[in-house]
C-alpha cells in the first residue's frame, strides 16, 4: 500500500472514531470536553521536541524552544484546567466530595 494512502486511511478512520466516541456527550459536559480535547492537541509538544532536538541552526533552536514552551503550556495547563472543571462538576453533584472511582459515596 502506498504510504500516503496508509496515512489517509488512519486519518479517515480517526475522524469516525473521534465523532463516535463523543456522540453521546451530555450538554453539561460540553465545556470540560472541549477543554480536555484542547489539552490533547497539546501533544504537538512531541512534534516540537522532535524538530528542536534535530536542528543545528541557532535561530531554529530558539524558535523551537518557544514552540516547546507554548505546547507545554497548552498540554499541561489544558489537563489541569479540565481537572479543575470536573472537580467542580463532581462537587456540585455530591456535596461531600469523594475521589472519582471511590464508590463509598453511594447515593447520587
Amino acid at each position: 500500500m502506498n504510504d500516503a494512502v496508509v496515512w489517509l486511511t488512519i486519518f479517515v478512520l480517526s475522524v469516525f472514531v473521534g465523532i463516535e466516541v463523543i456522540a453521546k456527550v451530555s450538554s453539561t459536559l460540553h465545556t470540560p470536553l472541549m477543554s480536555g480535547a484542547n489539552a490533547i492537541h497539546g501533544i504537538i509538544l512531541l512534534g516540537a521536541i522532535l524538530v528542536t532536538g534535530t536542528t543545528d541552526n541557532a535561530l531554529a533552536l530558539v524558535i523551537g524552544l518557544v514552540a516547546i514552551v507554548l505546547a507545554a503550556v497548552n498540554m499541561v495547563g489544558g489537563f489541569v484546567v479540565t481537572d479543575r472543571m470536573l472537580q467542580m462538576f463532581v462537587r456540585r453533584k455530591r456535596p461531600a466530595r469523594t475521589e472519582p472511582g471511590a464508590t463509598e459515596g453511594g447515593a447520587r
Binding site: S14, G18, I19
Partner: peptide, 20 residues
C-alpha cells in the same frame, strides 16, 4: 513529521471538536 500519534490525536480532536 511522520509521527502517527500526532496524526491520530490531532484528527480525533479535529473531528470531535467539529462535532462538539
Amino acid at each position: 513529521l511522520d509521527n502517527v500519534v500526532l496524526l491520530v490525536a490531532g484528527t480525533l480532536v479535529g473531528a470531535s471538536g467539529t462535532f462538539l
